[in-house]
Write a protein that binds this DNA or RNA. Structure first.
Length: 494
DNA sequence: CGCGGTCGCTCTACAGCGACCGCGGTGCCGTAGT
């Protein structure tokens, strides 16, 4: 029997596995497909890196962001592993050509789902022996694969064209529906699920009703003034993230910056690094900020606008309190705010006449290209490809049906979120129910949520008392007693 | 749909109002002879 602990010590220098890691690795080494839902910061990358040193061949990792791939490669190289490469658009043509030629020499190969569809890449991958096929941040399959980045939904198909290898899908947040989506989309064979609770007992959850912009801004500056940082503020739009920063700066707060997808890459990397290193106390951002932000001492996450779905909300608040110390998530909820996500769901897809105009113009003159939004075009082309034997009118009907289906699906998720904001029962139980977990095991306290009687004033007092890190251990112990975090709820199926 | 910015009106007034318009999230990706 293989001694995994010895391999762990030899290659990573650790004496013991973290929770779940060993079981996941054992299943993979035994050739099984695995879906792993591990809490953030649970040491997910080890789950594919270690098998890379046991199994014959290369580990292929599908990653959603260039920055994440680069990060992982840099980390591996820092650990002395030179046989790691990221095959992406950062490489020049010559570099890419060379990397593909030398592919058999690599042990860890990182790819985007988009590059996985190119013949050249597939051919090169087919010439090597793949020991393990990994999809990192696998919830993206469900979150993006249906519309925003359809290539995410083609990973399973690509996998079928490659040498058969066990498949590992990893994420921190997934509902039952998302887990099923991952399973089916990746064409996994009877996968073993290692699913841990999404509950984060050290994060208190609050929803504060706000009426109108002025009320919201007042509440915001009060919170920022009294809460211990570092903190994150999630806004619904790019301009909002910038405006929130100017407002708070005007109020005298310092070390704040904004972050959104419209900024230059270099600037984005700078802000992220400054925040991680503690030079920035507060970042106002859109949902672009998050994945790959490895910072364990975020003390609060404020939602200035509501997220559109529960799993997105959990991912966002889950960035707080990774050190296990008390943290708080507060949403400033104005019932009027539902209009923004509603509008976005509408706008995300082409309208019926746009769809019709696009497909009919292609029918009349294939060389003519009707200018429509890039995401709309990609959605149409992706689905038209599946219907390529049909005539254009059938395509219009079928794709329109698909659009309505997607919009309905997204709107439903939004209303579920709204329902959760409006209820007066325990918020944590509501979240756990949403993820299909029973909520009887966690011992809820007055620090649970506003519905459980949590008082923000008491919270201010507690965290102020424990400001600095001298008392960190004391708090950790108190929390363990309060929440029994030493006995995590593990729901392991199969 | 709501917000904010701009325009134009008033007509002693150049500040203040209403009408109107534009905007609103997430990110990959090309090229062939070593």
């Amino acid at each position: 029997m293989l001694n995994l602990n010895a391999v762990l010590k030899k290659h990573f220098g650790f004496d013991a596995f973290r929770e779940g890691q060993k079981e996941i690795i054992e299943d993979l080494v035994n050739g099984r497909d695995v879906i792993a839902m591990l809490p953030t910061g649970g040491g997910k990358s080890l789950c594919y890196q270690l098998p890379g040193y046991i199994l014959e061949g290369a580990v292929v990792i599908i990653s959603p962001l260039l920055a994440l791939m680069e990060d992982q490669v840099a980390q591996l190289k820092m650990n002395g592993e030179k046989r790691a490469v990221a095959l992406n658009s950062f490489l020049s043509f010559d570099e890419k050509k060379s990397a593909l030629y030398h592919l058999p020499e690599y042990r860890f190969i990182f790819l985007s789902p988009e590059s996985l569809k190119h013949e050249r890449v597939l051919n090169a991958l087919n010439k090597i022996h793949i020991s393990l096929f990994v999809v990192d941040e696998a919830h993206c399959i469900s979150q993006w694969g249906h519309d925003f980045r359809p290539d995410y939904s083609l990973i399973g198909q690509a996998r079928g064209k490659l040498n058969k290898a066990p498949c590992l899908a990893m994420t921190a947040t997934a509902t039952k529906e998302v887990l099923k989506d991952i399973h089916l989309s990746l064409h996994m064979t009877d996968p073993i699920r290692h699913v841990y609770s999404v509950n984060r007992p050290n994060i208190s959850i609050m929803v504060s009703e706000a009426r109108g912009l002025e009320d919201k801004l007042n509440q915001l500056s009060e919170l920022v003034g009294r809460l211990e940082g570092p903190g994150l503020i999630y806004c619904g739009g790019r301009q909002w993230s910038e405006k929130a920063v100017s407002y708070l700066k005007e109020k005298g707060f310092k070390r704040i910056a904004f972050y959104h997808g419209g900024m230059e890459n270099e600037q984005r990397m700078l802000i992220q690094q400054q925040f991680i290193n503690g030079q920035l106390e507060l970042v106002c951002c859109t949902n672009a900020f998050g994945m790959g932000v490895n910072k364990n001492n975020i003390r609060y996450v404020i939602h200035f606008h509501i997220p559109a779905r529960m799993d997105a909300y959990m991912q966002e608040i889950g960035r707080a309190g990774r050190d296990g110390l008390p943290a708080i998530a507060i949403t400033l909820y104005d019932p009027e705010d539902v209009q923004l996500p509603l509008f976005m769901i509408e706008k995300e897809f082409p309208a019926r006449d746009e769809l019709q105009a696009y497909l009919s113009s292609k029918e009349i003159d294939p060389s003519f290209k009707l200018e429509i939004e890039e995401t709309h075009e990609r959605f149409i082309l992706h689905h038209a490809e599946k219907l390529k034997s049909e005539n254009w009118e059938v395509k219009v009907d079928q794709i329109w049906k698909k659009i309505q289906e997607r919009q309905q699906n997204k709107t439903e998720k939004l209303w579920n979120m709204i329902k959760w904001y409006s209820t007066e029962t325990c918020r944590r139980s509501g979240i756990l129910a949403h993820f299909g977990e029973k909520s009887d095991s966690p011992s809820f306290t007055r620090f649970c949520c506003d519905s459980c009687g949590m008082d923000i004033e008491a919270y201010y007092g507690q965290t102020k008392a424990s400001s600095g890190y001298e008392t960190a251990e004391g708090w950790k112990n108190e929390l363990k007693m309060m929440f029994k975090v030493s006995e995590p709820i593990v729901q392991k199926t199969k």
